[in-house]
């Protein structure tokens, strides 16, 4: 088991280095000139100003040298300066990441908490009303566009019924909790500030539902299919022949075998939630990485784009690492 983990870790490290090279290369090869995007029309027409700018940001150096500088900085935890915000990219990411992390994690847990039980119930009562409901919900979740769903939810639950608070992470007049992580739920609990906690939680409800909608659908479907397959296996019949009760058979014998594809999907889904919250963050005025990414891309802010991409790819690698380890926990045949 420990060897299996060591192997996966090593592979992940190699992948991270490769990813950094690919990301850097591609970011610098795309057409588009950050200098022209940064400078105004008049400044950009003056070759001397342009050259000064290029020299300032190191854009006049050959590509390999720039990669060398980038790698050198990277090992010291320096992702370079953002051209747009004039701040270290790492500082920017540290500022925006917790909001996204919190939103994506809540959405992910929500997907699991709804998707897995719904999928199990749909498989157990196949072709019954639960199954129809599950299939209908997952179709809706997968096919409803995020901007539409976000708008409808806001219109109904904030504008109409006033059950949910409006956009943002907290009430506009509330102060963000002091804390080490930037995750409001965690920090407010850490500080024992119950009022801020409930406020942050209430603000998470709508965006996390919107963000999770597609994932809930996918997880429900995958769980249902895997459970149907698992319930038809011989060992399930054997466990019924042993005289085990219906739900013991389902939860103890069928479910663990059905979880492998669900974990695979879950890992992918979590990474996607982290990287793909742009639309939701925009509608809900969520100060997260998604919006930062969008702004950086619009400004052709290469250091920021490279930094974000690197963070996202490392997140993917970490999530995959966790997924691989869960396989080993779920299936003894993988442990080698």
């Amino acid at each position: 088991m420990s060897r299996y983990i060591a192997k996966r870790l090593l592979a992940a490290a190699v992948m991270a280095i490769l990813a950094s090279a690919v990301i850097f290369l591609i970011a610098n090869l795309v057409p588009g000139d950050p200098v022209l995007a940064q400078l105004g029309d008049i400044a950009a027409s003056d070759p001397a100003t342009v050259a000064r700018w290029r020299a300032k940001w190191g854009l006049d150096l050959p590509l390999w040298e720039r990669y060398g500088i980038f790698l050198g900085g990277l090992v010291q935890g320096d992702l370079g300066m953002s051209i747009a915000t004039r701040r270290p990219v790492l500082d920017d990411i540290i500022q925006y990441a917790p909001a996204t992390l919190e939103l994506a994690t809540v959405a992910f847990l929500l997907s699991l908490a709804i998707g897995i039980p719904l999928g199990i119930a749909a498989a157990v009562w196949r072709d019954g009303w639960v199954d129809s409901l599950a299939r209908g919900l997952s179709l809706l979740g997968v096919s409803a566009p995020t901007f539409w769903l976000a708008f409808i939810m806001l219109a109904i639950f904030y504008g109409g019924l006033e059950w949910a608070p409006g956009p943002g992470r907290l009430d506009p007049i509330a102060f963000p909790p002091e804390g080490p992580t930037g995750l409001f739920l965690f920090d407010s609990l850490w500080a024992g500030d119950w009022e801020t906690f409930t406020d942050a939680a209430a603000h998470l409800v709508l965006p996390s539902i919107v963000l999770a909608a597609a994932t809930i659908g996918l997880i429900t479907r995958t769980t249902r299919a895997a459970m149907l397959d698992s319930l038809q296996q011989d060992y399930v019949r054997v466990s019924r022949a042993k005289g085990l009760r219906g739900w013991t058979v389902v939860m103890r014998h069928a479910l663990p075998n059905a979880l492998v594809p669900v974990v695979t999907l879950g890992g992918l889904a979590y990474a996607n939630l982290l990287a793909g919250a742009v639309m939701t963050e925009t509608v809900f005025a969520w100060p997260g990485l998604g919006r930062y990414t969008f702004r950086s891309a619009a400004a052709l802010d290469f250091p920021a784009i490279v930094g974000i991409t690197l963070v996202v790819s490392i997140t993917y690698l970490l999530v995959n690492l966790v997924v691989d380890m869960s396989y080993a926990i779920l299936d003894p045949r993988v442990r080698r």
């Binding site: 296996q233 011989d234 060992y235 019949r237 054997v238 466990s239 022949a241 042993k242 005289g243 085990l244 014998h253 663990p256 075998n257 779920l330 299936d331 003894p332 045949r333």
Partner: peptide, 18 residues
């Protein structure tokens, strides 16, 4: 599984792998 028990054909698939 108590008073009456059953043994099936395929031992390769009859045991739960996990």
């Amino acid at each position: 599984g108590d008073r009456a028990a059953m043994v099936f054909q395929d031992p390769m698939t009859g045991l739960n792998p996990v």
